[in-house]
């Protein structure tokens, strides 16, 4: 049961050499990933006017107890916060 940001909340993500997310900054506050719970990729809606959605999603828990879903837009390579569980 979550909050959803339809446009995505921009975050600054720091990854390791393999591209694995390590920590991110959201609204000027740093969060460290405790565990990646799940990863999946979505490639959809290429036929729609709103455009193709091609993203790498990760569901993560942070060290201070948040559970959230992040994604990297593979077209722009930017990272966003999609959902925050509450």
């Amino acid at each position: 049961m979550s909050r959803l940001w339809p446009e995505g909340e921009p975050i600054q993500m720091q990854t390791d050499a393999d591209g694995r997310p390590l920590r991110f900054v959201w609204r000027e506050r740093p969060y460290r990933l405790a565990q990646i719970q799940q990863r999946w990729q979505v490639d959809a809606d290429w036929w729609r006017e709103a455009g193709r959605i091609w993203r790498d999603y990760v569901a993560v828990t942070t060290t201070d107890g948040l559970l959230c879903v992040l994604y990297q837009d593979l077209l722009t390579e930017n990272w966003f916060l999609s959902k925050l569980y509450d």
């Binding site: 049961m1 979550s2 107890g65 948040l66 925050l84 569980y85 509450d86």
Partner: peptide, 13 residues
């Protein structure tokens, strides 16, 4: 009250 991922929004829904 509660911070994120405390379940308060779930409870509200």
């Amino acid at each position: 009250s509660g911070r994120s991922t405390s379940g308060k929004l779930t409870l509200a829904y």
